[in-house]
Design a protein around this nucleic acid. Structure first.
Lengths: 203, 203
DNA sequence: TGTACATCAGTGAACGCGCGTTCACTGATGTAC
DNA sequence: TGTACATCAGTGAACGCGCGTTCACTGATGTAC
């Protein structure tokens, strides 16, 4: 059954969107071609009309995830001045909601442990995504007038990543909440945005 | 071939030590029974004389890793006063050496992404290990006279974990070093131990 | 406008490999006498 | 002290399942005339 021109691209995009969630939820080893294709409403045989291999899919999925994350970030802070943007982003990142939504969350938290074991392509695209995110944060930080914004952005982001990663890893709910709360406060204090009146998150 | 009484325990311990490295290096999905047994100088069939299943091995390996880490921590800071202990631990943790030695490093960094997908036993033991580590840090912090040491310990540890995790995940070496350096400085500053004259790490 | 043919996204059975697990067997050591 | 027997850690072949990949086939749509 041959379909219209654009249909192949739509299908491909649908597969990538499904894969983006599955990759964060199940990790690069457990995510399966059969399962992803079924979730996209197809059978597994057709997979190879779109991707050279599972590894190729994974590498492209990394781009997809970072693109989705960047888009979400844009939506959340849209129109806010730098200090509000920072505070809002930190609050939405270091949150119980983010902790509980791995499949829709930040790829750095979901995939960092797996990275050293992935293909070069996968790692490179991941690296690009991370750099872009750091740059975005650094720009906001620079706009608030704090010195050495790149360094600050790096260490702030890594603290955010660590907090959500640990909050997910720990089974004790009290400890998990405490981890988030402590990290959120300390990061915002460090950036001098702990006093910012929050705009409602628009995620 | 039946061997002496203690030999079984020795073998079991050898397997656990091998598994402890392999688990951190390869992750819970890629680590293999055949490979671990071979590295311990045995054939795979004998595995089930020691462990009920691969999952059972993984759960016990978590304990093994946290025990090794705790032992190493003790060795590193042995005899140092609290502020020196803190500074030394942070320096050895948030370091290029730790980043480059996943198989001998902190299990939180190596395994956090995989945790939500592991067995209950695995998660519980992991949780215990994390708690113990936070308590140790909290004790040192309390001894330096800083308030709310539990909270501070949580957020400091999560920042350390995030820094090493990201430094490992990123392919760009400059960015990786920068991440470590920025995190290390900021964490030590926050704890007021950035000025501490370092004892030589004895790891 | 209508007809014949070509294309190729998608189907579903089958293949092959890796890996966790099982099992019959071995033989060194411990125990009973 | 010496002999016969029992034990069971460890061996290695085999099994079975899941999963990535292949492949012959289908049939809706695009193109040529």
């Amino acid at each position: 059954m041959r379909y219209s021109e654009s249909r192949k691209l739509e299908t491909r995009h649908r597969v990538l969107k499904v894969a983006a969630r599955a990759l964060r939820k199940e990790g690069p080893e457990k995510i399966g071609v059969v399962e992803v294709m079924r979730a996209a409403g197809l059978t597994h045989g057709g997979f190879y009309a779109h991707f050279k291999s599972k590894d190729a899919l994974l590498a492209e999925t990394v781009d997809q995830i970072f693109a989705e994350s960047a888009e979400r970030l844009r939506r959340i802070v849209d129109g806010l001045p730098p200090r509000h943007a920072l505070a809002t982003y930190i609050d939405s990142y270091v949150s119980a909601r983010h902790r509980d939504d791995a499949s829709g969350g930040c790829p750095i938290v979901a995939l960092s442990s797996d990275l050293p074991r992935q293909s070069k392509k996968f790692q490179e695209r991941f690296n690009e995504g991370v750099k872009l995110l750091i740059d975005t944060l650094a720009k906001w930080i620079a706009d608030t007038g704090t010195g050495n914004s790149q360094r600050l952005a790096s260490s702030v982001l890594s603290a955010m990543v660590g907090a959500v990663a640990m909050a997910r890893a720990v089974t004790d709910p009290t400890l998990s909440d405490e981890l988030l709360e402590a990290a959120r406060t300390s990061i915002k204090t460090r950036l001098g945005v702990n006093d910012v009146q929050l705009a409602k998150a628009r995620a």
